[in-house]
């Protein structure tokens, strides 16, 4: 039987959801008998190829996030929003209280210890969006894995359901937003 292909990425995330994924510890070994990883921070693959499942942590905060998210949506049969940031913007969305210019000036112009103050404007850098958005405001999302971060058991629960061909059903005991 061919392996299930999974891609993962972190957009405006903290990589904590990926760390929580790795928290399944030795259970990763058994999981790897059933799945293989495509584009992911854990592999060296640069672009997402056709996959069965895409796991996306982090909200959408800049233009590059939008491109990556669309690449995942176009290539993954099932796209899963992982963690609080992907679901509602999370802590980074607290910047939505302020104007983007205020945030940039605080960090690069008026911040303590800033030398040669200037807002970075090289074309290599992706422009920030005026607000941080959850994934589902940009692409269709098939399933949500709440938590900040979701526990390793939550990852196993949803992947277990999908590997068995079941509709994911997160047990109440694993449901948390914090």
């Amino acid at each position: 039987m061919s392996k299930i292909r999974i891609a993962t990425t972190s957009l405006a995330g903290c990589f904590g959801c990926h760390m929580s994924f790795l928290d399944m510890d030795e259970r990763l070994v058994e999981l790897l008998e059933h799945v293989e990883f495509n584009r992911s921070p854990l592999t060296d693959i640069k672009h997402c190829g056709p996959c069965d499942i895409g796991l996306v942590e982090g909200g959408v905060c800049n233009a590059e996030n939008v491109h990556v998210l669309r690449e995942f949506r176009n290539n993954c049969k099932i796209l899963i929003a992982v963690g609080a940031c992907a679901i509602n913007g999370g802590i980074p969305a607290m910047r939505n209280h302020f104007e983007l210019r205020e945030c940039l000036e605080e960090a690069y112009v008026n911040g303590v210890g800033v030398e040669n103050p200037q807002i970075p404007d090289d074309v290599e850098l992706p422009l920030l969006l005026d607000k941080v958005h959850p994934l589902h405001e940009v692409v269709h999302v098939d399933y949500y894995l709440p938590g900040c971060p979701p526990s390793a058991d939550e990852f196993l629960s949803v992947l277990g359901d999908l590997l068995e061909g079941r509709e994911p059903a997160l047990p109440r005991s694993l449901l948390h937003y914090d």
Partner: peptide, 25 residues
């Protein structure tokens, strides 16, 4: 934003959402 809220775990709104199996907004 439950992860940064002092009321998380003690919040009735959050507990009701858990009770109803809410995964997203």
């Amino acid at each position: 934003l439950c992860p940064s809220c002092e009321k998380t775990g003690d919040c009735t709104l959050q507990a009701v959402a858990y009770h109803l199996g809410m995964l997203d907004g």
